[in-house]
C-alpha cells in the first residue's frame, strides 16, 4: 500500500468519524423530539395543531432537499469557485463599449486619491482562467 492510498484511507476514515460525531447526536435529538411530537398528537387532540407549522417546515425543506440533490447530480458544485469568476467576466463583456467614466462613477471621493480597486474594466481584464480583474 503506497503512501498516497494510506493518506486517502485516513482521510476517508476521518470523514466518516466526523460524520458519525455530528449525525448520531443529531439523529438522537431529532428522534427524541419526534417521539415527543407523536405522543402529543396521540394523547391530546388539541395538540394536533402543532402539525401545521411542522408540515410547513417539512414541505419547504423537502423541496429544497430535492433541489439540493438535483443540483449535486447536475454537477452544480463541481469547480465550485468557477461561477464567481464567470460572473465578473460576463460583467466585463457587458461593460464593453461603455465609456470608462460611466462605469467608474462612484470610486473616488472629493479630494482623495483614487481607489486601488476599480469597477470592472474590460480593457484591464485578462482572458482565460487567470482570474485577474484588476
Amino acid at each position: 500500500m503506497n503512501e498516497q492510498t494510506t493518506v486517502k484511507i485516513k482521510r476517508r476514515l476521518g470523514m466518516w468519524l466526523l460524520t458519525a460525531v455530528i449525525l448520531v447526536p443529531c439523529a438522537y435529538g431529532f428522534g427524541t423530539k419526534f417521539n415527543e411530537f407523536i405522543a402529543l398528537y396521540r394523547g391530546d387532540a388539541e395538540g394536533a395543531f402543532a402539525i401545521s407549522p411542522i408540515l410547513n417546515y417539512l414541505l419547504a425543506s423537502f423541496g429544497f432537499l430535492l433541489l439540493f440533490f438535483w443540483a449535486a447530480f447536475k454537477g452544480m458544485f463541481h469547480d465550485i469557485e468557477r461561477p464567481k469568476h464567470t460572473m465578473l467576466e460576463n460583467e466585463a463583456t457587458l461593460n464593453r463599449g461603455v465609456p470608462r467614466h460611466l462605469v467608474d462613477l462612484n470610486t473616488r471621493s472629493s479630494g482623495s486619491r483614487p481607489s486601488k480597486h476599480r469597477l470592472l474594466d474590460p480593457s484591464r481584464m485578462q482572458t482565460g482562467n487567470s482570474h485577474e480583474y484588476n
Binding site: Y57, A60, F68, F77, I80, K84, L88, N106, H117
Partner: peptide
Amino acid sequence: VPILLGKPMWSHGLSLVGFWGLAFFYPL
C-alpha cells in the same frame, strides 16, 4: 459587491453554505 470592488468573492463555496443553511434552518 464583487463588481464594485473589481474582484470576486473570497469563497463561492462558503457563500453556497450560507444559501443552503438559510434554506434548511430558517423556515422553523
